[in-house]
Design a binder for these strands. Structure first.
Lengths: 110, 110
DNA sequence: CATAGTACCTCGCCTGTCAAGGTATCTCTA
DNA sequence: TAGAGATACCTTGACAGGCGAGGTACTATG
């Protein structure tokens, strides 16, 4: 079973920011890591990913720079900004709350 | 703090079906119960709610009938169908999985 | 008679996801 | 040396769900 788009929606930014919290990275790699960590069940499509990067950069939550990789295609690296760190913590807290509420609304009893 | 639209997205159907699992009900009441259970933090807007009812009925997951309330405005009651019960269980399982994956992707370490 | 509460419904905008398509570079193999 | 496959990036347009705004209709209360 893999996670459908509408379940992903609203969590994409949080997941990307959480990744960048561990250090700069680039699109292709972020996608691979997310896919690996979730055993392939949470898969960001490329279009979604790059749309998200653009959005996050416009909001000042991340910045980007071209890395020179001696070999292979060029990479655009992303770094999280202080505002991004804050946003990440906020989104994490929101996620925690969403979880609690949803558990209550979906629970078997009541 | 209340739950933003994009976090709600994808969960609306599950929440409504979970409510109807406990017995027939009508829009206004379902909304109130959801709001109460979540302490006002998960709030379905009316437009969202009625759109969802329509969608769920078209998919055969719920049926509706006019209830005659002697007093006050007329109410349209909704009942969950066998297919709806199945869908509800499936969505509940999906939610459980989403939770696990998200926790992994957002966790502090790693 | 006006106001507030109950209860329903629709239209049109906005936003995020994604299928499809494209570009460029490097490595490996036939 | 040609071709395939992996790496790596990006854009466009369609689509779907949430929701603001607006509307209808009935009852109770002051």
């Amino acid at each position: 079973m893999s996670i459908a788009g509408d379940l992903i929606r609203g969590h994409t930014d949080a997941v990307i920011l959480a990744r960048l919290l561990r250090g700069d990275s680039y699109g292709y790699e972020i996608n691979r890591v997310i896919s690996t960590l979730s055993s392939g069940r949470f898969e960001l499509k490329e279009a979604t990913l790059y749309t998200a990067f653009k959005r996050l950069e416009e909001q000042g939550l991340i910045t980007s720079y071209w890395g020179d990789s001696g070999a292979g295609a060029r990479r655009r690296y992303y770094a999280i900004t202080p505002a991004g760190v804050e946003a990440c913590f906020r989104l994490r807290a929101e996620w925690k709350e969403t979880k609690e509420i949803m558990d209550k609304l979906l629970e078997e009893e009541t």
